[in-house]
Design a binder for these strands. Structure first.
Length: 582
RNA sequence: GGUCCCGUGGUGCAGUUUGGAGUGCACGCCGGCCUGUCAAGCCGGAGGCCGCGGGUUCAAAUCCCGUCGGGACCGCCA
């Protein structure tokens, strides 16, 4: 039906008779005897010259047969890859007429996203999605090749699985053959990939679809794809090397060069310097420690377990009093008791609503510690340490974060995550920071004690590190992984500390624990989000731009109108009844 | 669960602060002209429940309340 793709034609094809198929992207008619038609297919555009009248409208699907020729001198279009040539003496066959599209398909117009999703099949014709989806396919291919080169075996794992209570909210699927019972869709293939290690597959990978019923964001959809990896007889360093190789291979196919990784950051250092476990290191404005400076201050608001500040260069010049007040309100919404702003004046003095409560050495100390100069804005938060980091970390991003496509690619590993992220106020037991199969850091293992021993004090528990690690790119968490526990006494102790009794452990994870009785190799793994990686490589702020058919923030699909009701018969078959809306 | 922004011919916007006739811009669409254009050009034309509902007012796109839809974020996402 077709001899060539439009965008592939060039001066080498001059003189060839070609047959092209595609959509009428633009047409420029010059009376009844000459018309230019830009024909579009997946590869791009080429100009077709039609002598004589032709009733060709936007987005008509046509087949064009003609001869490739050089454009007359002076009429070349350098903006078009095929702009040196054109297809002349065209005969045009209309394969399919088209109504005018509901929005322009040219790149020059930003279209409301709801419209784009309602007519996604038209949006897909546009250059942006064509480019992004091609890029995505290239990334998938590069990742697969990299993993296979490193000896990994692709394995498919089930979509209909048993629900496990921890973690994100499950999507569930009712069982017809066993009414009243439900499958869950996988939040990740976690348990299966560990089972595959017990099964001796040694090195497993999969580009796996994962589903989590949690609120959507710019970087989160219900369903997403991740490169899922697990390997036996390896340590954390090995795993990070495997994954590093995969993301560098992906970046290289897109940018043509392999970006360098930044040095590893410990979780603690990331939190202290950036107020985030996924630091965006493309800009400064790091958190500055002020706690010692106010150890014996008379200013009550700064008599806190932690006082930290960030400095925005020239922030005081750019921001009005109202904007500063808005920052204070925002900080409060994020949970801070307050936010103190300070302006460094041209004479070096500090202007602030609280300046009168601070003495000379304290003010000078803030300026010195932050390195503030005239025109700079300093924002101080005093509170419990986790809250201070959190609020200043968010403020830092809000004030200083560059657009996603600026500043290059800054990959880094965050290591030494805490084993527990807090103490549950109700049970008094620790809350796991990762899943309960995460191996503690070897240096902290002894401090946790063994099965049956007393529970260590809270500071020992909260100080314990795990062998968990995150991959971060430009402030986005690409993924995380860990060394898994393969020793039964360690696993028993962790369950014990988490308040999971033997019976409960057996009920929730029995099949994995059983498997571990029969010879579990030491193993470790990782998973990173393909959607996020592709978005960042494509320079997109939003993963919907790299997904062919995404959902809106409220989880709807305006194209298919999912989710929808199902009919009574289906419900009955499944043994379900829908409760009236409250 | 919460905070904030947006909703005006098919598309993208201005108008909303300070209420006064659906007033405007660009693109698209329809018709005409046009033999080297390329986001073609020129002339003419059609096209509006200002998301929806209620309220205030002599009068509402504009003010108030509610609701629906979209987006950003906090919580949530082991």
């Amino acid at each position: 039906m077709r001899s060539d793709y439009c965008g592939d034609l060039g001066v080498d094809d001059v003189g060839r008779k070609v047959t092209l198929c595609g959509w009428v992207a633009r047409r420029r008619e010059h009376g009844a005897s000459l018309a230019f038609v830009d024909l579009r297919d997946r590869s791009g555009f080429v100009q077709c010259v039609v002598d004589g009248a032709a009733d060709l409208r936007s987005e008509y699907v046509v087949r064009v047969t003609g001869t490739v020729r050089l454009r007359p001198e002076g009429t070349e279009n350098p903006a078009l890859p095929t702009g040196a040539v054109e297809v002349g003496q065209c005969t045009v066959e209309v394969l399919s007429a088209a109504e005018p599209p509901p929005f322009p398909l040219s790149e020059h117009v930003d279209v409301d996203e709801n419209q784009r999703l309602r007519y996604r099949y038209l949006d897909l014709r546009r250059e942006r999605l064509q480019r992004n989806l091609r890029l995505r396919a290239a990334v998938n291919s590069a990742v697969r090749t990299a993993m296979e080169r490193q000896g990994f075996l692709e394995l498919e794992t089930p979509l209909l699985i048993a629900s496990t209570p921890e973690g994100a909210r499950d999507f569930v699927v009712p069982s017809r053959l066993k009414p009243g019972s439900f499958y869950a869709l996988p939040q990740s293939p976690q348990l299966f990939k560990q089972l595959s290690m017990v099964g001796g597959l040694d090195r497993y990978y999969q580009i796996a679809r994962c589903l989590r019923d949690e609120d959507l964001r710019a970087d989160r959809q219900f369903e997403f794809s991740q490169l899922d990896v697990e390997a036996s007889f390896v340590d954390a360093v090995d795993i990070r090397r495997f994954v590093t190789e995969a993301v560098l291979a992906a970046a290289e196919t897109v940018t043509g060069e392999r970006p360098s990784f930044l040095p590893d950051l410990t979780w603690h250092e990331a939190m202290e310097r950036f107020g985030s476990d996924k630091p965006d290191v493309r800009f400064g404005m790091e958190l500055v420690e002020l706690t010692p400076l106010f150890a014996s201050t008379t200013f009550n608001a700064f008599r806190a377990p932690c006082v930290k500040a960030i400095r925005e260069p020239q922030g005081a010049v750019q921001r009005s009093r109202k904007q500063l007040d808005d920052l204070v309100e925002q900080a409060k919404r994020w949970g801070a008791k307050g936010l103190v702003w300070m302006r460094v004046e041209s004479d070096g003095t500090v202007a602030s609503p609280v300046a009168k409560f601070l003495d000379e050495s304290e003010l000078r100390g803030i300026v010195e510690a932050t390195g503030a100069e005239a025109g700079d804005l300093v924002l101080v938060v005093a509170d419990e340490r986790p809250l201070v980091r959190h609020v200043l970390g968010l403020l830092r991003l809000n004030l200083g974060r560059p657009p996603v496509n600026e500043g290059g690619l800054h990959f880094l590993w965050v290591v030494d995550f805490p084993l527990f992220e807090g103490i549950d106020p109700e049970t008094g037991g620790p809350v796991p920071a990762h899943h309960p199969f995460t191996m503690p850091h070897p240096d902290d293992l002894a401090g946790l004690g063994g099965p049956g021993e007393p529970v260590p004090p809270a500071d020992v528990l909260l100080g314990a590190r795990s062998q968990a690690y995150d991959l971060v790119l430009n402030g986005w968490e690409l993924g995380s992984g860990s060394v898994r526990i393969h020793r039964r006494e360690v696993q028993s102790r962790i369950f014990e500390l988490l308040g999971i009794g033997a019976e409960e452990a057996q009920r929730k994870f029995g099949f994995l624990l059983d498997a571990f009785r029969y010879g579990a190799p030491p193993h470790a793994g990782f998973a990173f989000g393909i959607d996020r990686l592709v978005a960042l490589l494509a320079g997109e702020e939003n993963i919907r731009e790299v997904i062919a058919f995404p959902k809106t923030q409220s989880g709807q699909d305006p194209l298919t109108n999912a989710p929808g009701e199902i009919d009574e018969r289906q419900l009955r078959e499944l043994g379900l009844r829908v409760l009236p809306r409250t």
